[in-house]
Design a protein around this nucleic acid. Structure first.
Length: 578
DNA sequence: GCCGTTTTCGGCCCGACTGTTTTCAGTCG
């Protein structure tokens, strides 16, 4: 087989991560492990498709943290679809062992102990061992960790496998291009994770389209194959369905396969009330097709204006459509800049200058540099002195670069008592202060809420970053009274961030809608840790759109002058935090 | 395993927290 096109950056990243896991279990040199982890992150974030580049006979670009050895492993995987070193390592351990490491509170040392002493090799094994009370008998474990692990493993086992939107995109986009297809389903609705991929092709030659689909180089297994539809599993494990319809049905089919199911049912019901039949082939009066070539025509036939895919969740969109009050959703092109980004001064990988040039190339008017503050030791967070020095560097760059303005900022830690991790004098000199909770994510709800509300009472805080701290499928959101946070945000003129990192998407869609309904301004930011991270903005935009948010409610949809006015005009402190 | 040399070896972001220990290893960010 020629798997050249079937390897994506996400696959290479996953292989490196798995090697890192297995090396850790073996007790390998931690710096070697870190090299693999770092490489996984670099490759995973990269916008350039490495295997495609290699397949075209191109050279691997020089990437920071990828030396001779790792480059050879990437090349091997690009050429063969496999990585020998990984397969060799796998033979040292049972297959399920790495999923244990994904559990919070379980690292390589204790996972190895479980394996060695209890033969726990999978989530199922762990559940049994924890239930039988055997875990607590192992040194390093106790009653409490037994209980916590049991909860974690049960939560994990009840979740079906879904792919994060940005990962799914790596598989969906090349296949859509290959087929000349549109991706429908929850992918088109920009849900944060997707279960499978739905492709739609308008063609008078369905057999040819099906043939081409089944012959795609990444197809691992053909589950079903008919004359107008087929289902396959791709090498990545994601299921892909193709439906082929004639052009006159394309809009109806696109509507049908975009969903959500509840939205479709409601639209069909509207049609029925008008004596119409709505299905994936069109809108029919009796046997006469009266609409279906475009989605607009389908909606028009049932008496509605076009409804954007992100809104089709039965969250009031039909009523709003009837009343003519559908929102005009924010679009990527509306955003004028980014207010949360890191540099190599802390845990970013690119310099100030590189970030500035990349933001300019991406068409941004401004980019706020918001490195971490001192409390985040792991990131070598900035103290007031280093922050001031960075400010001078920014002044110099702003004087020399054209076409992009760097704003001076900080991602300041919100400490456990709600105070900010830098002195007020230092914060007062900045253009924008982004505050975030990093440690102590597991405080009880009332304490966590008090902490965040107190931080928002600071006259310096402009934006509350990734408000819940969740990591999709990895870490639960912290316990927070979001309604109280939103009320405080509105009262204090603090913006809530929609963090665009594909692992975060925090605020999530529900909270975005809440912010919209409560009139809270949001800021859609990348939290980029590299120049490639700037491209994640579209994922934040997707969540904002799912939350009905329009550009007037987005801080960084404002041009620079208006942004500066907004940042400078905060309500005065209303009352001290108690 | 990478990197940058002080050029072929030695350093590599490190402090806080937790539950377990009784002085700290493991985990996290």
């Amino acid at each position: 087989m020629s798997p050249k096109t079937s390897v994506h950056n996400a696959d290479i990243a996953a292989a490196f991560d798995e090697i890192a896991d297995l090396l850790e279990l073996e007790g390998a040199n931690p710096f070697r492990v870190r090299a693999y982890r770092n490489a996984a992150r670099v490759v995973g974030e990269l916008q350039l498709d490495l295997a495609a580049r290699l397949a075209e006979g191109g050279e691997l670009p020089k990437l920071a943290g990828i030396g001779e050895d790792l480059a050879a492993k990437i090349a091997e995987m690009g050429a063969t679809g496999r990585m020998h070193a990984l397969e060799e390592l796998r033979t040292h351990f049972p297959a399920g062992i790495t999923e244990l490491l994904r559990l919070p509170g379980l690292g390589p040392k204790r996972a190895a102990a479980l394996h060695d002493r209890l033969h726990v090799d999978s989530l199922e094994d762990l559940k049994r061992a924890a239930r039988s009370g055997k875990l607590r008998e192992i040194p390093g474990f106790g009653e409490r960790s037994e209980q916590k692990l049991l909860e974690a493993v049960e939560a994990r086992l009840t979740k079906s496998r879904r792919f994060k939107l940005a990962v799914a995109a790596q598989y969906a986009e090349p296949l859509a291009r290959y087929l000349g297809a549109t991706v429908a389903g929850s992918y088109r609705r920009r849900k944060e994770t997707v279960g499978d991929l739905d492709f739609l092709v308008a063609s008078l030659d369905p057999a040819g389209a099906i043939e081409r689909f089944a012959g795609y180089s990444e197809v691992k297994e053909v589950l079903a194959r008919g004359t107008t539809k087929a289902s396959v599993v791709l090498a990545s494990g994601i299921q892909a369905d193709l439906r082929v319809v004639p052009p006159e049905s394309f809009g109806a089919a696109l509507h049908y396969f975009t969903g959500s199911k509840a939205h479709n049912i409601a639209v069909r019901r509207l049609g029925m009330a008008l004596g119409l039949k709505v299905n994936e082939y069109g809108v029919f009066r009796g046997t006469k097709r009266i609409a279906g070539a475009t989605e607009e025509s389908v909606y028009r036939a049932v008496g509605l204006p076009y409804i954007e895919p992100e809104l089709r969740e039965m969250q009031g969109e039909l009523q709003a459509a009837r009343e003519g009050t559908l929102p005009t959703l924010v679009a990527l092109a509306d955003l004028k800049g980014d207010l949360h980004a890191h540099t190599s001064a802390t845990d970013g990988r690119n310099t100030l200058r590189e970030m500035a040039l990349a933001a300019k190339a991406a068409g941004m008017q401004y980019l706020a540099i918001t490195d971490h503050s001192r409390h985040l030791a792991m990131a070598r967070g900035l103290d007031a002195t280093r922050l001031a020095r960075q400010g001078r560097e920014i002044d110099a760059l702003n004087a020399s670069l054209g076409g992009i303005v760097l704003l001076k900022g900080i991602e300041v830690d919100i400490l456990e008592d709600g105070s900010l991790d830098l002195p007020a004098e230092a914060l007062a000199k900045l253009d924008v202060v982004v505050g975030a909770v990093h440690g102590k994510l597991d405080l009880a709800r009332d304490r966590q809420t008090r902490r965040v509300l107190a931080a928002m009472d600071s006259p310096h805080l402009d934006i509350l970053a990734h408000p819940t701290g969740r990591l999709i499928d990895e870490r639960e959101p912290c316990e927070l009274d979001m309604a109280a946070v939103m009320r405080k945000a509105r009262e204090r003129g603090v913006c809530l961030e929609i963090n665009s990192q594909p692992d975060r998407l925090d605020l999530n869609d529900v909270h975005c809608r809440m912010a919209r309904d409560m009139g809270v301004t949001v800021s859609i930011d990348t939290d980029a840790h590299s120049v490639d991270g700037l491209a994640d903005l579209r994922y934040g935009v997707g969540q904002a759109r799912r939350g009905w948010i329009g550009k007037e409610q987005v801080l960084n949809a404002r041009p620079l002058a208006a942004l500066r006015r907004a940042l400078g005009r905060k309500p005065t402190r209303v009352k001290e935090a108690s």
